[in-house]
Structures are given as C-alpha cells and as structure tokens.
Amino acid sequence: MNSKKEEENVVIETASRIMIPFIQLFALYVITHGALGPGGGFQGGVVFASSYFLYIVVFNIIEGKKRLPESVYTTLSSTGLCIYAGVGLLSIILSFGMAQYLNYGFIPFTSHFEKNRSLGIDLVEIGVGITVMAVMVSIFFDLAGKEKKDKGE
C-alpha cells in the first residue's frame, strides 16, 4: 500500500523537492530582511516551518522525523530563546552593569552605538525565528503524529 502510494505521487514529490529549498531560502530572507522591510522573526520562522510541513505532507511523518529528529528540534526551540535572553544578559555583562537588560547598544559588535543596536535587532530576530520554527514543527509533529500511530496500530 505504502510503496504503491509513493509511486503515484512522483510528480508531487519532485515538485516539492524543487520547491522546498526555495521556500526555506525565502524564509531566511524574511528573517534577515525583517529590519529593512516587511518581515521578521515570527513570520520567517513560520514560513520555514511550513516548508517542513510540506515535506511531511508529501512524504510521510516517519521520513519527516528522520530529517529533523526530536532531539534537534527540541534543542533548537530552546536555543532560539537562549539567543534572545542571552543577548539581553550580554548587554548587562559586557557593560559591567552599566547598561540595562536588552540594551543592545552596549554589546561591542562594532564601535558605533546605533550599528550595535541594529545588529542586536538582527540577532534577536534570528533567535525568534529559530524558536518559532522549532516550536511549530514540534507542535505539528505532536498533533499529527498521534493520529498516524492510532491508525497504524
């Protein structure tokens, strides 16, 4: 049953194989371009997660879990938040208690206060993007995986 189904879906599989990298590229563009135009971490993260959803819908959930194992997305979900909260903490540490939490200007990426701020915004957006992507994938796997298992058993 399963192998037959796969044969029938050859067109969709090929198409999605071509599309998925572009969706992911677009997601990265949305995340990194968030400071300049429409976009941002949350939107980009969701788009990135949707590329995985496409992969899972076209292939199946076991294939999807091979691509992105549980340990990876669980770690990623906390990594993103860790980046965000860590950037905030860094600004206290690197300014020796002078600056407040989340005051990116005091993180010495460059010598310019404003440039530091904009880099800080980018970093934070990346953190949000990672978390949102990982959590969306995690929620999807949990909500969808249950049904598959019930049918299988």
Binding site: G34, A35, L36, G37, P38, G39, G40, G41, Y104, E114, K115, R117, S118, G120, I121, V124, E125
Partner: peptide, 15 residues
Amino acid sequence: KETGAPNMVTHGLAD
C-alpha cells in the same frame, strides 16, 4: 536614527 532599522514595526518589536 537610533536603531538603524527602517522598518518601524521591527525596531518597535525588537528594540
């Protein structure tokens, strides 16, 4: 000027 991000929603959101 202060944050270097032209998108106001982003600099409001992140900064």
